[in-house]
Design a protein around this nucleic acid. Structure first.
Lengths: 141, 141
DNA sequence: CAGTATCCGAACGGATACTG
DNA sequence: CAGTATCCGTTCGGATACTG
């Protein structure tokens, strides 16, 4: 797309009241926040885990290796708020809460996984590039 | 559970010496770092800017609205190290340095832009979900 | 089980000053 | 122009303890 993304424009009405399209390159566009939620450290892994299964809180904790309770809760809140994840609590005892992707969440996660798959596929090239960079530029660290 | 992504496995040999595929869900997989570089706050915007043009340092600074010198330099180093961006310095005076995407960088950026485009397209739904979430859950926080 | 609350160190990130 | 170095406040994020 060779259109102007408005990267350098200060006038970021960006989708709100105007008919301007949303634009992550615009400084105050809410899409920036969603992008961060989706691609953030735990957001992408959480979506990835839910891409395969409906999961409960502690199941997610076990599957997303390394995430803390705090971060998982925070991540799930953000994704739920953006309408990408659906939370369903059964009023049983002990409590049971299921998390699953919404329709929109599945679409977004699909593209996200596409990006991830490409990176994983090309990691050999990337590691080779790193090796070159690290030897050319001083190892002197 | 359909396919095991190894999310919960501690044994993350992950591509290194073994024949295991790279896996962002594995704790120590180097692909996690690359994913962070690509999707990070300034990484995605920098790649997006270079998707359209070869640019010099200060041109990039102006196009990626809001980035500081420090962050732009840091971001470019990381992307160059991963072999996604190529840096070419002319030994002139004053110095001139051009940044452009590598072939791999163009592929990665393509998918990244696909994700971004979807999010931008669906922002109305996302904002609606936010509105619902914020009113249902107490404003009383 | 499914979270919330708190503490605190580490990392992020902006502003400024300086170098080649 | 193209960066590096430094200072320093803000946020991130893990460990722990506690609630319903």
């Amino acid at each position: 797309m060779t259109t102007n993304h408005g990267i350098g424009t200060e006038t970021s009405g960006c989708g709100g009241d105007e008919q301007l399209p949303f634009d992550v390159f615009a400084r105050n566009c809410p899409s920036r926040e969603t992008l961060a939620n989706v691609t953030g450290r735990w957001g992408s892994l959480t979506l990835g885990a839910l891409h395969e299964d409906t999961l409960r809180f502690n199941e997610l904790r076990r599957r997303v290796e390394g995430v803390s309770e705090k971060m998982l809760a925070q991540t799930l809140h953000a994704l739920e708020r953006d309408g990408l994840v659906h939370r369903e609590a059964q009023p049983t005892n002990p409590p049971r809460v299921d998390y699953r992707l919404t329709a929109l969440g599945r679409e977004v996660t699909g593209r996200l996984m596409g990006l991830i798959a490409l990176l994983e596929e090309r990691m050999p090239e990337i590691l080779a590039a790193r090796g070159r960079y690290d030897t050319e530029r001083g190892e002197t660290r």
